[in-house]
Design a protein around this nucleic acid. Structure first.
Length: 492
RNA sequence: CGGGCUGUGGCGCAGCUUGGUUAGCGCGCUUGACUGGGGGUCAAGAGGUCGCGGGUUCAAGUCCCGCCAGCCCGACCA
C-alpha cells in the first residue's frame, strides 16, 4: 500500500477539494475533535434519520424508527402500569384555545404554526397545529369530569407535535417530533403531586436507567425553566458524551391553572364544586438523540440490547459454502434461543465494509463465521461496546451470547455514570459554577445563585438543569428552594 | 431580527481574485473481473439549466446589480 504522493503541489491540492477535511476515507470524525459533526455523521451513517424537505422536519428511517418503537413500548408499558389509558386528540386546535391560559399562551406563542387557509379559502378562524395538547385535552376534560367519581382521570396520547424552531438538530430539536403526552386530573393537590412524581420515577427514570442504560439526575426546574403554565416541573437530566446536559423527560404539576382556565370542576362528596388538580408529562424522540450522545463512541452507535432492533448479527465472513451453511444454522439457533438476529450473508460487499456498517449501527453482538474458525470448531464473537473479540465454541454460543448481552446495558450505564461523576464538581458560588459548568455539571447551593445569578448564567450559555437535595434526592413539599442544590451546566 | 458566510452531478468541495476550447476532484452510484478475516483492487460507465433574474462583453461558473434559498454566531425551546 503506497500512500498518495506526499509532495502535493498547491495547484493539485485544490482539485482534491473537500476530501481532506473529512479525514480518513469513510471513518467518523472523532467525538473529541468535533462532537456536533460526529453526531450528524452517526445519524446519517447509521441510517437513523434524514432532514425533511421543510426546514426543521425529520424523516425517521427504519433503523431509527425501530429504536423508537422499542422505547415507545417500554414507556407505554409503564404508563399503563401507572393506570393511564391511551387516547387520541386532534392535530388542529382552535386558536382561541391556546389563549385561555395566560402563561401557556406566553410560553408557546412564538413557537406556533398557524394554518390560515383551507379548501382554497382563508379560514374564518385560524387553526393552530398542536405544539402540545394541553388545551384541547382540557377542553374535553371539562366535559368529562363532573363528579369526584370521574377522578382521577388519567389520559396519555402518542402523537406528533409541531413547534417553530430556530436551530433544528435531528432528534434533539426538530420542528415536528413524536412524543407521548400524558394529561391527568385529580381531586386534590396531593394526588396530583404524587402522580407527577410517580410518572417521573416509575416511568421516565426507570426507562432511562433500566432500558436506555442512561443514568439520570432527577429534580425540579427553576421558575425560569419550568413548563409554561406549570406550578412545578420535574425533570430527568442526563449528561451527554461532551459534558452537556439533555432533558430526557418532564413531569409537571399544573396546580389548578388549566382547571380554572378551562372550567374543569367536579362535585365532591358534599356536592360542592371544586376545581381539579392536574399533571402533564412528556418524553419524545429526543431520547434517540440522548442514546446516540450518551453511549456512542468513535466507531458509531452503541445500543443497549433492550433497544437494539437487532441484538445479534451473524456475519458470513467470506463467500464460502460451509460458512453460509454454518452461519444460517447459527442464526436459527440464536433465534430459537429468543434473540433478535439478523443474518448478513451478503457477498457483494466486503467483510470490512459490512463489519463497519453493523458497528456504526450499534448492534451489540456480532458473530463472525468464516472457514478459518469453522475449521477449528468455533466462531468469533465481537462485543460492540468493548470492541472485543472472542473465540466461542458453537455449542456454547447461545449461552455466551446471552451472558454478553446481559452485561451490555450494565456496562454502558456504568460507563456513562462514571463519566458524569468525573465531570461533576461542587461549586461554592456563581463564578465557580460557571467554570465547572462549561465542561460538565456544577453542583452549587441554589441560594448562591438565585434568579439573578440564573440570568447571568444564561449569558455564558449555562443554565440550572434542576434543583435537588444535596444527596441527589427529590425535594419534598416542605423544602424551600433555598435549601437545595442547583445543578448547573450547558444544555441541548 | 442584528453580525459573518455560502449557493457548482446524490453528498462534500475546487475552479471565481487575473472572463477564453470538452467545468474538474473525492466519496457514493452502475457494469464487469479479480477478490474477500476491518470501509479491497483494476477497468469501463452514468450523472451538472454552475440558486434565480437582469446587465457588461466578441465571450460569464468567473465581473456588476437585484432577488431567492441556506449555513454559522447572538435573544427562545422536549
Amino acid at each position: 500500500m503506497t500512500p498518495p504522493s506526499a509532495a502535493r503541489t498547491p495547484d493539485d491540492a485544490g482539485g482534491a477539494g473537500g476530501d481532506a477535511r473529512s479525514g480518513a476515507k469513510g471513518s467518523l470524525t472523532p467525538r473529541g475533535r468535533d462532537f456536533p459533526r460526529w453526531y450528524q455523521e452517526v445519524v446519517a451513517r447509521a441510517e437513523l434519520a434524514d432532514n425533511g424537505p421543510v426546514r426543521g422536519t425529520m424523516v425517521i428511517r427504519p433503523w431509527g424508527y425501530e429504536i423508537w418503537e422499542r422505547l415507545q413500548a417500554a414507556i407505554d408499558e409503564r404508563i399503563k402500569a401507572a393506570g393511564a389509558h391511551n387516547a387520541y386528540f386532534p392535530l388542529f386546535i382552535p386558536e382561541a384555545f391556546m389563549r385561555l391560559e395566560a402563561e401557556h399562551v406566553e410560553g408557546f406563542d412564538p413557537e406556533l404554526w398557524v394554518v390560515t387557509h383551507g379548501g382554497g379559502k382563508q379560514l374564518e378562524e385560524p387553526v393552530v397545529v398542536r405544539p402540545t395538547s394541553e388545551t384541547v385535552i382540557n377542553h374535553f376534560f371539562a366535559k368529562w369530569v363532573q363528579s369526584h367519581r370521574d377522578l382521577p382521570l388519567l389520559i396519555n396520547q402518542w402523537s406528533n407535535v409541531v413547534r417553530w424552531e430556530l436551530r433544528p438538530r435531528l432528534f434533539l430539536r426538530t420542528t415536528e417530533f413524536l412524543w407521548q403526552e400524558g394529561h391527568t386530573a385529580h381531586a386534590d393537590e396531593a394526588g396530583a403531586r404524587a402522580y407527577a412524581l410517580q410518572i417521573l420515577t416509575d416511568v421516565y427514570q426507570e426507562t432511562m436507567e433500566e432500558v436506555a442504560a442512561i443514568p439520570v439526575l432527577v429534580g425540579h426546574k427553576t421558575a425560569r425553566e419550568r413548563f409554561a403554565g406549570a406550578v412545578r416541573t420535574w425533570t430527568c437530566e442526563s449528561m451527554m458524551g461532551d459534558g452537556k446536559a439533555l432533558q430526557m423527560g418532564t413531569s409537571h404539576e399544573l396546580g389548578q391553572n388549566f382547571a380554572r382556565a378551562f372550567g374543569i370542576q367536579y362535585a365532591d362528596t358534599s356536592g360542592a364544586l371544586r376545581y381539579v388538580w392536574q399533571t402533564s408529562w412528556g418524553a419524545s424522540t429526543r431520547l434517540i438523540g440522548a442514546l446516540i450522545m450518551a453511549h456512542g463512541d468513535d466507531y458509531g452507535l452503541r445500543l443497549p440490547p433492550a433497544l437494539a432492533p437487532v441484538e445479534v448479527v451473524v456475519l458470513v465472513v467470506r463467500d464460502d459454502e460451509d460458512a453460509h451453511r454454518a452461519a444460517a444454522q447459527i442464526a436459527d439457533d440464536l433465534r430459537r434461543s429468543g434473540r433478535r438476529v439478523h443474518l448478513d450473508a451478503r457477498t457483494d460487499s466486503g467483510f470490512g465494509r459490512r463489519s463497519v456498517d453493523w458497528e456504526l449501527k450499534g448492534v451489540p453482538v456480532r458473530v463472525e463465521v468464516g472457514p478459518r474458525e469453522l475449521a477449528e470448531g468455533h466462531v468469533t464473537l465481537v462485543t460492540r461496546h468493548l470492541r472485543s473479540k472472542d473465540a466461542v465454541g458453537i455449542g456454547a454460543l447461545a449461552d455466551t451470547v446471552a451472558t454478553v448481552l446481559s452485561r451490555v446495558g450494565r456496562d454502558l450505564h456504568q460507563e456513562a455514570l462514571a463519566f458524569r461523576i468525573d465531570r461533576t464538581a461542587e461549586a461554592a458560588g456563581l463564578a465557580e459554577a460557571k467554570e465547572i459548568g462549561a465542561s460538565g455539571f456544577a453542583r452549587v447551593p441554589w441560594a448562591e445563585i438565585g434568579e439573578q445569578g440564573e440570568a447571568e448564567l444564561a449569558g455564558s450559555a449555562l443554565s440550572v438543569r434542576c434543583l435537588q437535595h444535596g444527596d441527589g434526592g427529590l425535594a419534598s413539599a416542605q423544602d424551600p428552594d433555598s435549601s437545595l442544590i442547583a445543578v448547573v451546566g450547558r444544555a441541548y
